[in-house]
Design a protein around this nucleic acid. Sequence first.
RNA 1: GGCCAUGUAGCCAAGUGGUAAGGCAGAGGUCUGCAAAACCUCCAUCACGGGUUCGAUUCCCGUCGUGGCCUCCA
Length: 464
Amino acid sequence: MRLQNTMTGALEELVPVTPGKVGIYVCGVTPYDSAHVGHAMSLIVYDVLVRYLRWRGLEVTFVSNYTDVDDKLIDRGAAMGIDPLDLANTNIAQWEDEQERLGLLKPDVRPRVSLEIENIVGMTEEIVANGFGYVTASGDVYFRVRAKSDYGKLSHRNIEDLRTGTRFEPGDEKEFPLDFALWKSAKPGEPAWDSPWGKGRPGWHIECSAMSRRYLGERFDIHGGGLDLIFPHHENEIAQAEAAAHTSPVFANLWMHNGMVQRDGEKMSKSIGNVVSVGDALERWSPDGIRLYVLSSHYRSQTNLTDEAMAAAGAGVERLARAATRDVPDDATGARIEPPEGARESDFIDALEDDLDTSHALAVLFRLATEINRAIDAHRNGDDIRAMQATLGEFAGVLGLTLEQGGSDAPREDAAEIDALLLERTAARAARDFKRADEIRAELDARGIVIEDTTQGARWSVKR
RNA sequence: GGCCAUGUAGCCAAGUGGUAAGGCAGAGGUCUGCAAAACCUCCAUCACGGGUUCGAUUCCCGUCGUGGCCUCCA
């Protein structure tokens, strides 16, 4: 599989550190507020990566963290008058529920900063001992950026460029403006832990270096996150990890970064008030629809979330789901058929091998759907058609799509009533009382129910 | 200001130095009592201006637009 490595800017072959195994670390959220669709998009991308690699037979260890100790949590907690860790736990619980509804795989390890303090302190000590960190009079520990000659190599900036525009704050104890905090001494009322430098808490960046090393080793395969994390977060992670390294001069082999989601052509931001939370999204659109939308563009590109695009994604899911679940006659005497050019497993694999080209992979699914429909209409061999349906379902599964129909089996309180109306309509049609039949259809339509007359009889489903 | 992306049909969105995947929407047709679904057909010359080339949407330069990062951010 080839993936674009942000570090080199080139497409690189994924060559696992340990053959047959892949370690992936993805930066998780800071749970100071509800998650939004941008977070969801990011995780959907890596979710598909993990699913695909596993489908291909690789043993994947997927690690993603929660930053539950952070300035934002402390500030928000103070404003709300609650303990920042409680706030984090509340938001994490909500987000985990939403992740499940989005069909996201659970990471194999889900570390939290608050439970990793010893690990983080240990790494910080190593960095200081190696001369890459220093302790100030007030008990803060900073990373000495100038000691790392290749600092900036991920974001392709040099220290001089970065220095422009920065300056020392009055009373700043930093040696150099770009130095960043590894450990922050505790202020009254803040969550704090013991350390060799007194009570305090970790800086933002050190956690990911410490946790990824603990669970994946000093060198691992893929580190992912949003484009906005390249600088300073990932840059600093690299500096820290390499400053503490014992055996490997390289931290992550491949750096993957997903593009940002815009809403109606604008950046989602609290100030504009256009942030779409995951909760809102799940209210309005199906998990498959959200996923299809995300996967319809390349993960590195910026996407624009519009109601129209979401409706299109939902309709696309319907098309795939229908084809995958459409009744196929048992007849196995029809002419044999197999997936056509562009709809074969090799096409699907080629697409995803090529820097996770999910858009192309989806095109394979749609071609397969068309072929299934054609084959059914043409009374082709039933076994062959069912095989194609199974393939479609399998590919969809690799992409994390469930293709569940919102059909008659969907739980609905008035199901019995709807069934009764449908029976009445069937009787009316048999009696050629089309006026009454159409009335019933209109009534059900008003209730969000769609009727289809098929050769197997009438059926209803929930309109999406 | 610096660094980096990006600009493809009504919308979303792939892609390639040799005249543009796929989805949604739309139009016509088949099927249907009518619909729905499905199937068939149709629907773009790739922001603009230069350059390189036998030939560019695809490479280079410039302009304009959009966005990201440079401070917290998926």
